[in-house]
Amino acid sequence: MALDLILLIIIVICAFAAVQMRDLLSAALVLGACSLIMAVIWTRLNAVDVAFTEASVGAGITTVLMIAALSRTRRGEEGGEERDMGWVHDGAANKRFIFRHIAMLIVVLVTMGVLIYGTMDMPDFGDPDAPAHTHVARRYIEKSREETGVKNFVTAVLVSYRGYDTLGETTVIFTAGIAVVLLLRKQRR
């Protein structure tokens, strides 16, 4: 439990750093590090398939894509310190800036309060009687070996029981590929 807590706190710190960093390249790399630690957490939660995906997709491809996008845009944030700190010389703009940020902070804090209030009704972490474990999950675990002949239950659910979902999901990836080609491919005649 202590190790999990430490890992979670590292992730929160990494996320905060990635959001606050002015250098976008560093932010992308910190986000990649965050994904890699996330993969460790998933291994600790016994979600080995998810850990595998996170390590290859989240830490690998997402970081590479971010760096590729940065290579075609700009590495740092514009505006410098004075805008972020609210020290603009124009008084009215300054006030507007501070007001806007306070409003956003209130929105974020209220949402957080509502969500934390919502967790009070959630089953405890690791509760074997949680509703999530009592319906279809039991069937997947007990029957998937004889119904699909697959040892890995996650693969059985992904490909066999929920083949429709995966078909839709493959279509989503395909659509994303097409969208990127449409947006970025240079026209040649």
């Binding site: 595998f52 890995n152 693969t155 059985a156 992904l158 490909v159």
Partner: peptide, 11 residues
Amino acid sequence: HGDLGPGGGFQ
């Protein structure tokens, strides 16, 4: 080896 252990088409 997606059906024997972790892994599969996506990874």
